[in-house]
């Protein structure tokens, strides 16, 4: 077996072993049955919840918020990144603040937005957007900074207008970094939306987890957690695979 295959086989072996443990430990009664549910019951319960439509509304709400916040982050983050790249002084003024931005516990702001906008999608989308947008801004600046000078010289010697310089040289050359920004933004958006819903909301998959927990519906809680984990891991692996395929490098 080649090393790559051995690595993959071992990884899957470990993952399967972990899943098997989640199945076996509660079945053997090693933990309190209200603490952990066997994996097969989580899957079955998730299937039931999906089939009878209990989760449909929550999933719809969560996905809508994720798409809205993600789209908003792209639409605002790209222009802000380009502007910051052009405005050297502004960028240097903001740099220490941008570097510390992700140190701020953003979820503390969530109650403030609930107080202003009321319970609903709005505060959720704002939190998720605020967390995702800065990753796009930073990666856009980094990407545009990293454009090889040779490409810029080619553009100059072709006497491209500054608009064309941007659309034909700078932007395409910066896309690998910008894609990394999108990838980060995607996982930040998902975390932002689901975590906010969990903290306080009236709908959404994150809300459903907390709601089930508070009502001792442990099976429902684990079913929803399972759905969230599968979704987050699938999205992340999908974007990572896409990035490798497009740009042939590891994020």
């Amino acid at each position: 077996m080649s090393e790559a295959r051995r690595v993959r086989a071992t990884r899957w072996g470990l993952v399967l072993a972990f899943l098997a443990l989640i199945e076996i430990i509660p079945r053997l009664g090693l933990v309190n049955p209200i603490a952990l549910v066997p994996l097969s019951e989580m899957v079955w319960q998730l299937w039931l919840l999906l089939k009878d439509g209990t989760l449909a509304d929550h999933i719809l709400r969560t996905l809508t918020s994720i798409v809205a916040a993600g789209a908003l982050a792209v639409v605002t983050g790209l222009p802000l990144g380009v502007a910051l790249w052009r405005l050297e002084t502004t960028r240097r003024i903001l740099q220490p603040y941008l570097t510390t931005y992700y140190a701020i516990p953003i979820f503390a702001f969530y109650p403030l937005f609930i107080a202003i906008f009321g319970l609903g999608s709005m505060p959720v989308i704002i939190i998720a957007w605020a967390w995702a947008v800065v990753a796009i801004v930073l990666q856009t600046v980094i990407g545009l900074d990293a454009v090889p000078p040779v490409l810029v010289k080619v553009g100059r010697s072709l006497r491209l207008s500054s608009w064309r310089m941007f659309t034909r040289i700078y932007f395409p050359a910066a896309t690998p970094h910008i894609f990394t920004g999108f990838k980060l933004a995607a996982s930040y958006t998902v975390i932002g939306v689901i975590a906010s819903e969990f903290i306080q909301a009236e709908k959404g998959v994150g809300f459903f987890v907390g709601f089930s927990y508070n009502n001792f519906a442990i099976q429902n809680m684990y079913a929803a957690i399972l759905l969230i984990l599968v979704f987050a891991v699938a999205l992340n692996s999908g974007l990572l695979a896409l990035e490798r395929k497009l740009y042939g490098r590891q994020g």
Partner: peptide
């Protein structure tokens, strides 16, 4: 993968 999941939802555990 674990880094990128919404960890808050695991808090009940």
């Amino acid at each position: 993968s674990v880094y990128s999941i919404p960890k808050v939802t695991l808090f009940p555990i």
